[in-house]
C-alpha cells in the first residue's frame, strides 16, 4: 500500500502547501511508499526537490493542457493514477487549488473528502481533525472510505526534508476527453506592479466600523503610509461600501502575516481574527476595553481611533525629525 500526494507547481518548483502535505502523509503512514503527482512539470528539475522531501516515485502527467492551470484535467490524471496504485490515501495541500482538485477527485470517484485537516490517525476508518470557520473551530470526524481523500490545512505541519536522493520518475499521458479540457486558464491578467500588497506588508493598519465613514479612513491611510505599510479593513467596512473588498482582512478576505498589525476600531469577530492569525504582534486601538480583540492583542490603546491615530502619526513625524536633526 502507498500514499499519493498531488503536488502543485510553482514558478520555482513545488508550492509550500504540497510540501507540507508530504510531511503530513509520511507521519500518517510511516514507512509507506510515497508517490507524488505533478502535472506539466520539468521532471529533471522537480525530481531532486521532491526526493529531498521523501517522495519515492514522481509521476509526471504530460499533456498540452497542463501548460496552464486545468483543475479538472489534473483530477482526471489523479484518478487514472490512483487506479494503478494501491493507495491508503490521496492528499494535497489545503490551498485553493488543492481543495478544488481533491473535491473533483471526490466527485469523480464518489468518495468523501475531508478538507483542511490538521491531524489524522490511520484507520480504517481514518480519524481526522479538520478546521472550520477559517480555523476558529476544530471538527473531529471519521472518514468512511477505502481510499481516504484529504487536504492538509496550511501550516498544520512544517515541510520536512529527508535528504533522500532524487525521486524515480514515471511519465504518463492521461486519457483526457474534450470535457476534461474545457476548464483551463485561457488568459492571465496581471495587475500592474508596485505598492505594498496586504498579504505581504510588514505593517498593516486596519479600521473597522469605528472609522465611521469612507472619509474616516484618512488618518488610517496616513499612518499606513508613514510606516510603509498597507491599509486593511473589516468586513463591516466593505459591506458598507467604504473600502474595496481587496482591503478586507479575514476569513473571506485576505490572510495577512505582518510584523505588526494595528487594528483600529475593530471588535475582533472570529471571522476577522481568522485573517490575522499570522500577525506577529497586534496593537488594538479601541474605545471598548472589553472588546474581544483585546484577548488576542499584545498591546492596546483605549481610545477613539480619530483621536489616537493622528496623534501617533504626529509623534512619528516628530521622532523622525528629531533623529534627522541629531544626525
Amino acid at each position: 500500500m502507498s500514499v499519493l500526494v498531488l503536488c502543485e507547481r510553482r514558478s520555482d518548483g513545488i508550492d509550500e502547501p504540497s510540501l507540507q502535505a508530504l510531511a503530513f502523509a509520511r507521519a500518517l503512514y510511516p514507512g509507506t511508499s510515497v508517490h507524488a503527482l505533478a502535472c506539466g512539470v520539468a521532471a529533471d528539475e522537480v525530481a531532486p526537490l521532491l526526493g529531498a522531501y521523501g517522495v519515492e516515485t514522481l509521476h509526471v502527467a504530460e499533456h498540452e493542457v497542463f501548460d496552464t492551470y486545468a483543475p479538472h484535467a489534473v483530477a482526471r490524471a489523479a484518478v487514472e493514477l490512483a487506479g494503478r496504485l494501491r493507495l491508503h490515501a490521496l492528499l494535497a495541500g489545503g490551498s485553493e487549488q488543492g481543495n478544488e482538485v481533491v473535491a473533483r477527485v471526490g466527485a469523480l470517484l464518489d468518495l468523501p473528502f475531508a478538507a483542511n485537516c490538521v491531524a489524522a490517525e490511520a484507520g480504517p476508518p481514518l480519524r481526522v481533525t479538520r478546521v472550520r470557520w477559517g480555523g476558529s473551530l476544530l471538527e473531529e470526524a471519521l472518514l468512511h472510505a477505502e481510499l481516504a481523500l484529504l487536504t492538509v490545512a496550511p501550516h498544520a505541519v512544517a515541510a520536512q526534508e529527508t535528504n533522500d536522493g532524487p525521486a524515480a520518475v514515471e511519465r504518463f499521458a492521461p486519457a483526457l476527453d474534450d470535457a476534461d479540457l474545457l476548464v483551463r486558464v485561457r488568459e492571465r491578467a496581471r495587475a500592474a506592479g508596485g505598492g505594498v500588497t496586504l498579504a505581504d506588508a510588514k505593517v498593516v493598519v486596519s479600521a473597522g466600523r469605528g472609522a465611521g465613514s469612507a472619509e474616516g479612513f484618512a488618518p488610517v491611510e496616513e499612518l499606513a503610509a508613514l510606516l510603509g505599510g498597507a491599509v486593511g479593513c473589516s468586513r463591516a467596512v466593505t459591506m458598507a461600501g467604504w473600502r474595496p473588498h481587496t482591503d478586507q482582512v479575514g476569513q473571506t478576505g485576505t490572510k495577512i502575516a505582518p510584523e505588526l498589525y494595528i487594528a483600529c476600531g475593530i471588535s475582533g469577530a472570529t471571522q476577522h481574527m481568522a485573517g490575522c492569525k499570522g500577525a506577529k504582534r497586534i496593537l488594538a486601538i479601541n474605545t471598548d476595553p472589553d472588546a474581544p480583540i483585546l484577548e488576542s492583542a499584545d498591546y492596546a490603546v483605549i481610545g477613539d481611533l480619530h483621536d489616537v491615530v493622528p496623534a501617533i502619526a504626529a509623534a512619528i513625524r516628530a521622532a523622525r525629525n528629531e533623529k534627522a536633526g541629531a544626525e
Binding site: Y299, A300, V301, I302, D307, V308, I312, A314
Partner: peptide, 12 residues
C-alpha cells in the same frame, strides 16, 4: 494585552 495608555496621550 499590555495597555499602552488612553487616548492621544498614548502616542509616545
Amino acid at each position: 494585552a499590555e495597555i499602552l495608555g488612553r487616548g492621544p496621550e498614548a502616542a509616545p
